[in-house]
């Protein structure tokens, strides 16, 4: 087929916006950022910044504050990935055969689309340890159970302190994971899309051969879901590692730094401690770390996962 390349009919006009955007928002920031990370710029006077080479990056190696922040992020991310994906998978399996599938998928996806600053603040109030409804309902439930058991002679059957959620070092990260569970609709959609593309004939054949529910799930559904699982694990992990909004809005002094996550630490280094170059070095180091993790995980997963994307991605 011939494509008339008149002056008014250039492909470049379609590609140019994306090309400029990519350069401006990905290329230039990375190069410029790497360059400035090798200076001692304070974020204000660029002409006074001096070249320090790799000093900022070597300083990262024994910056215990940053290491602590990375550890906090990592602990939160691992717990968050596990809990959120478990719920997402369960939701997807429940929606799969529902009669009004689209309607249910929308209901479960809705919290994901609603969540922003407003919902973090709502959750902070729901989980308020002294006046929030969650703890008040828990207290009422424990009280009535204890009352019931006391009438048959068992005193103080349940004698536990209510969780302090965001107001304790141990409860803050689980509280955040709980809040994130509410957004499991995003990964659910990925699981659901993969489930709907599985071949029902295989599962029915296995059923005729007498395979039980568990056996069918592990031997037939799960292998077909693995690509979606890998995708979800990586995206949720990367998103959790750079979680900013919730820790920024919800950290307080009583958490003893439990929500001092990597992105929050970087933000404070740049804008509160005025060490802009060092913050850039932190950003770049974490980016490199996440990239290495993802690539490593993908290579490791190759052994177990069959991807059928080859026709999709060849361009």
């Amino acid at each position: 087929m011939t494509e008339p390349a008149t002056r008014k009919d250039r492909t470049i006009w379609f590609v140019a916006p994306w090309l400029i955007g990519f350069a401006l928002m990905y290329g230039v920031p990375l190069v410029y950022g790497c360059w400035l990370a090798m200076t001692d710029w304070d974020g204000i006077a660029l002409d006074k910044a001096g070249w320090v080479g790799l000093d900022n990056f070597t300083a990262l190696l024994d910056d215990s504050r940053f290491h602590q922040a990375l550890e906090n992020s990592l602990r939160f991310s691992l717990l968050n990935v596990f809990c959120q994906l478990l719920l997402a998978l369960w939701l997807a399996l429940m929606v799969r055969h529902a009669r009004r599938r689209g309607w249910w998928a929308t209901i479960f996806y809705l919290p994901h689309l609603l969540s922003g600053v407003a919902t973090w603040l709502i959750w902070a109030w729901l989980l308020n340890p002294s006046v929030g409804p969650v703890n008040r309902l828990l207290a009422t439930a424990i009280h009535s159970i204890n009352g019931g058991l006391a009438s048959i002679g068992i005193e103080h059957a349940i004698d536990i302190d209510l969780p302090l959620w965001l107001y304790s070092p141990d409860g803050a990260r689980p509280a955040l994971v709980l809040m994130n569970l509410w957004r499991a609709g995003g990964p659910m959609l990925i699981f659901l899309a993969a489930l709907l593309r599985t071949n029902p004939a295989i599962e029915e054949a296995a059923m005729l051969d007498g395979a039980g529910r568990g056996r069918r799930f592990w031997s037939i559904t799960m292998p077909q879901l693995l690509p979606a699982l890998v995708f979800n694990v990586l995206t949720v992990f990367v998103a959790s590692m750079q979680h900013f909004e919730a820790p920024y809005l919800l950290s307080n002094w009583s958490q003893n730094g439990a929500l001092q996550f990597a992105t929050l630490e970087i933000y404070q280094t740049a804008f509160e401690r005025q060490r802009f170059s060092y913050a850039l070095a932190q950003s770049i180091a974490l980016m490199a770390l996440l990239t290495v993790c993802c690539v490593g995980a993908l290579i490791a997963a190759r052994r177990f996962v069959r991807y059928d994307f080859s026709t999709e991605l060849s361009g």
Partner: peptide
Amino acid sequence: WWGRPVCFGLVLLSMSAPVNLLILPRFLV
């Protein structure tokens, strides 16, 4: 067009870019 496969690879790459970490370098730009 010339370079399309490479550019499409960049699109896929940008889909998984850590946006919250890029925000500081973008701030500079």
